[in-house]
């Protein structure tokens, strides 16, 4: 064995291969440099384990108390977090119900908006109409009508006040509630007053309502 081989074997010996000790000792007997390396390695492999340290009883008490305190605090924090989460879930469940009872229908808004576009509305076959707007109307009945009516008149009021505050935007024609039959004919020229569109939309929507629910027993 040469000296570089010896150094490699010392690494293996340090890694736990105790059987190499005899081979290493043979070379070390003839080589002073390697002998020192082996003496050092011997010291390393025979290092004593850290002695268990006996703590003072006060230290043990301190640790136990801090653990108990920590667990108590964490339990409280968990309880608070749980209560908070439960309240949030409850709120998430209750709020829509409250909204449901105070504002029966939010659906008419898109119906009105859809119909309020100032473009000619093509004539549609009577049979296809109920599928567009009948559902919400049947479900919420008079409350839905009332809400839509309120929405339309509020839109009209705001449009009138807007037009009054901006003379440049004054429409060519005076706002008036056109009969539903005129829908699509008057909507092409100039700036369409918002109030008329809203009223038209509302009238058109009213017109689309069925006469009685017997026509659609499935709903």
């Amino acid at each position: 064995m040469n000296c570089p081989d010896f150094a490699h074997k010392v690494e293996e010996y340090l890694d736990g291969c105790k059987a190499l000790r005899t081979v290493l000792a043979d070379h070390a007997a003839e080589c002073p440099g390697c002998r020192e390396l082996l003496a050092w390695a011997d010291r390393i492999v025979s290092l004593p384990p850290p002695e268990p340290t006996t703590p003072a009883p006060e230290w043990t008490e301190r640790v136990v108390q801090s653990v108990l305190r920590d667990r108590r605090m964490r339990r409280q924090r968990r309880t608070v977090a749980f209560a908070l989460a439960a309240s949030l879930v409850l709120a998430a469940l209750i709020l829509p119900i409250l909204r449901w009872t105070t504002t029966p229908d939010a659906n008419p808004t898109p119906v009105v908006a859809e119909n309020a576009k100032p473009q000619p509305i093509p004539e549609q076959p009577r049979e296809s109409v109920p599928e567009l707007s009948l559902g919400p109307a049947l479900r919420f009945g008079p409350a839905s009508l009332e809400a839509t009516r309120n929405l339309a008149s509020e839109a009209a009021r705001q449009a009138t006040s807007l037009a009054a505050g901006a003379p440049g935007l004054r429409p060519k024609a005076e706002p008036r509630a056109d009969p539903v039959a005129d829908l699509g004919r008057n909507a092409t020229g100039g700036l369409e007053p918002v109030v008329r569109s809203t009223r038209r939309a509302f009238d058109a929507w009213l017109d689309l309502l069925p006469v009685s629910t017997d026509e659609k027993p499935g709903l």
Binding site: P52, T54, P55, V64, V67
Partner: peptide, 17 residues
Amino acid sequence: IRELVERFQGEVLGLCV
């Protein structure tokens, strides 16, 4: 809790020291 602390405190503290 006390028992667990006492069972391992010597070794844990020894290693920490």
